[in-house]
Every structure is written in structure tokens, then in C-alpha cells.
Amino acid sequence: MQTDQVTSEIFPHNVQQTLDLIGIFVFALSGGLMAVRKNMDIFGICVLAEATALGGGVLRDLVIGALPVAAFTSFGYFPTPLVAGVVVFFLHPEVERITRTVMVLDAAGLGLFCVTGTIKAHTYGLGAVPSVACGMLTAAGGGVIRDLLAMEPPSLLRWDREIYAVPALVGSAVVAILIGMGRLTPLYASLAAVVAFAMRMLALKYGWRAPRAWHRNGSRTSEE
């Protein structure tokens, strides 16, 4: 059985699109909330919502040459972040109060997008390592764009934040290994997404952070 055929049909189209829209909406909420914290107007809120939700997928599609990018051709992908932006504009106190729920859904979106990003990159002919990189880019790239637009250090590069890119990297790597073994199925792809989701949730619960430079200036300093 051809691997490309398997990867391109791993999830039914309607299921895939529904999951994508849910993930896009939740990512957009986080972008909108960042804009509110930065005291931006409605335009800024919608811009950050769009960038957070779609930025990773747009970058991935540009890298692999999937043009025009899915964000502008797939039904609902572009309008959904606008809806989320409007929700944040009017209801941001309520959205802030359910931050924990948003973080759980964000972790689920992370798991989904790292898997689908890896699969799509492989389908377009990339090898295992570039496909893993594209999977991580799909899941975490929007957050980087959001932080840069908000003039913040990207959160996934900050040592004082729970790991975010690492779970996406692990989920993407699991998918690449399954593809290489010819064992990628909807069940295994879903399990890879669950692995990334579980890692992110455990990181939030236990404060997992990536290690800093070994023997860095004799250990910790006052910048903590």
C-alpha cells in the first residue's frame, strides 16, 4: 500500500475539517486575549486572532509548496478566527475566566495540528526530519507570530514557560516513525495526537520546562 495514499486519507474529510475549525477557534481565542492584554483595538484583536490560528499552517504550506495555502481556500478557515476575535472583543472577561478550559483545548489543538502538519508535509514529498519540523511548525508557528506581533519574546523560547514545542515535536516524531514503518492508521495517528496532548497537559500540571545551558553561570541568578 502506498504511504502517500495512506497519509492523504488518514482522516475523513468532514471529521478533519471539523477538528481543524475547533483548533483554529481555540488558537484564535488565545491570540485575541493577548491583543486585549496589549490594549489593542478590534482590528488588532482580529489580526492577532488570525495570525495565531492560521500562521503555523500558512508557514507550513509555503514551505512545502501547497499553494494557494489552505487557510484561504478551505471553507471556514479564514472566517473562524474573525468570529473568535469578535467573541473576545465583547466577552473577554468571561473568556479569561475559562482560561483553564481554553488551555486544555489549546493542548488538544496542538496535538491535532502537529499530527496533520507532519502528514501533509510527508504527502508533499518531504522526508522524515523535514516533515517533523513542519508538524511542529504547524502546531506552534502561530503562537510565535502572535508573540512577535505583540512585541513579546516568543513564549516557546522562554525558559520560564512550560514546554510547548517539545510535545509537538514528540507527536510529530511519532507520526514520522509510523509512516516510516508503514503503520500509520487513523487509530495510531490519533494516539500520536494524544501523546502530544498528554505531554502538554502534564507540563502545565507539573511545571515541566526544558533545561537551560549546562552549568550556566553556576546555576540560577536574580533574573528568575
Results as ranks from 00 to 15, higher is better:
1 M>Y: 01
4 D>Y: 10
5 Q>I: 13
6 V>P: 00
10 I>T: 11
11 F>D: 02
11 F>G: 08
13 H>S: 14
15 V>C: 06
20 D>E: 13
25 F>K: 08
28 A>I: 06
28 A>T: 09
31 G>K: 04
43 F>H: 05
46 C>P: 00
50 E>W: 04
53 A>H: 02
58 V>C: 03
58 V>P: 03
61 D>V: 09
61 D>I: 06
64 I>R: 08
66 A>S: 14
67 L>M: 15
73 T>Y: 05
74 S>P: 02
74 S>T: 15
77 Y>E: 10
82 L>D: 11
82 L>K: 03
86 V>D: 04
94 E>G: 05
98 I>G: 01
104 V>D: 07
105 L>M: 14
105 L>Y: 01
107 A>C: 04
107 A>G: 10
110 L>G: 05
110 L>K: 13
110 L>Q: 04
113 F>N: 02
118 T>D: 14
124 Y>G: 00
125 G>A: 05
128 A>W: 05
131 S>G: 15
134 C>F: 11
136 M>W: 01
145 I>V: 15
146 R>G: 01
150 A>R: 02
152 E>Q: 15
152 E>I: 09
157 L>W: 11
161 R>V: 14
165 A>N: 04
167 P>V: 00
169 L>N: 02
175 V>S: 11
175 V>F: 14
178 L>F: 11
179 I>V: 15
181 M>E: 09
185 T>G: 09
188 Y>M: 10
191 L>W: 03
194 V>P: 05
196 A>Y: 07
197 F>L: 11
201 M>W: 01
201 M>C: 03
202 L>A: 10
207 G>W: 12
213 A>H: 11
215 H>Q: 09
218 G>H: 03
218 G>L: 04
219 S>E: 09
223 E>V: 05
224 E>G: 10
